[in-house]
C-alpha cells in the first residue's frame, strides 16, 4: 500500500518534468547514422555498382522482400539485372546489410517513406542505387576477389601472384 502511494506520488511529480516528446513533423529529430531506415545500394570507389548479385541479402531477409537476378557484363563482372525491394514488407531488420559481402546494400537514416499506395513502396534498382559509397568508403570487392573483370586481369588483385605460366618446365 505504501509502495503504491509512493509510486503515485512519483508519477504525480512527473507533472513538473520536461516532456521528452519531439514534435516530429514540426521539429526534425536527429537520426544516428547507423539508423536502420530506407535501404540503398551503393557504388564502389571507382563508381561501379558494388552489388555483385550474390543473393545473400535475399536469403537473409526474414520476410523475403528482396528479389534480384544476377547477370554478367562481357568481361565477367557480376551485377544484378534487376534488384527489387518491397518496402511494404520490409521490417528494417538490417540482416541484408549484415549479410552483404561487398558493403553494397546499406540501411540509411531516412525513414520518411510513407505512401498512400502500397505499390509505390516497391523499389527497383534505379530507386535504390545511389552515387556514393555510403557508410563504408574505400572497400572495393573486385580488388580483393580472384575473378577477372574489365581492367583487372588475373593476378592484378590485392595480394595476388602473377598467373602461373603453364608452359614453364622449371621445377
Amino acid at each position: 500500500m505504501w509502495n503504491s502511494l509512493k509510486t503515485m506520488w512519483t508519477i504525480f511529480l512527473h507533472m513538473f518534468r520536461r516532456r521528452v516528446t519531439i514534435q516530429y513533423p514540426d521539429e526534425k529529430p536527429v537520426i544516428p547514422p547507423r539508423w536502420r531506415g530506407r535501404i540503398i545500394l551503393s557504388r564502389d570507389p571507382d563508381g561501379e555498382e558494388r552489388c555483385v548479385a550474390c543473393y545473400l541479402c535475399a536469403a537473409a531477409c526474414p520476410v523475403d522482400c528482396i528479389a534480384l537476378q544476377a547477370t554478367e557484363d562481357e568481361y565477367g563482372r557480376r551485377y544484378p539485372s534487376f534488384f527489387r525491394i518491397n518496402f511494404s514488407r520490409c521490417i528494417f531488420c538490417g540482416y541484408c546489410e549484415e549479410a552483404c559481402p561487398t558493403d553494397a546494400i546499406q540501411l540509411t537514416p531516412d525513414f520518411e517513406m510513407g505512401e498512400y499506395d502500397r505499390k509505390n513502396l516497391v523499389y527497383e534498382k534505379e530507386d535504390l542505387l545511389i552515387d556514393g559509397t555510403g557508410k563504408y568508403p574505400g572497400y572495393n570487392f573486385y580488388r580483393v576477389a580472384g575473378l577477372a573483370i574489365k581492367g583487372k586481369d588475373k593476378g592484378d588483385a590485392q595480394d595476388e601472384a602473377p598467373p602461373v605460366d603453364l608452359h614453364r618446365l622449371l621445377p
Binding site: 518491397n86 511494404s88 502500397r118
Partner: peptide, 16 residues
C-alpha cells in the same frame, strides 16, 4: 526452406 524473394518477386506486377 531458404527460398527467397517470396514477397518481392512479383511485386512489380502486383504488390499483393
Amino acid at each position: 526452406h531458404r527460398y527467397s524473394g517470396r514477397t518481392a518477386m512479383l511485386a512489380n506486377i502486383d504488390v499483393h
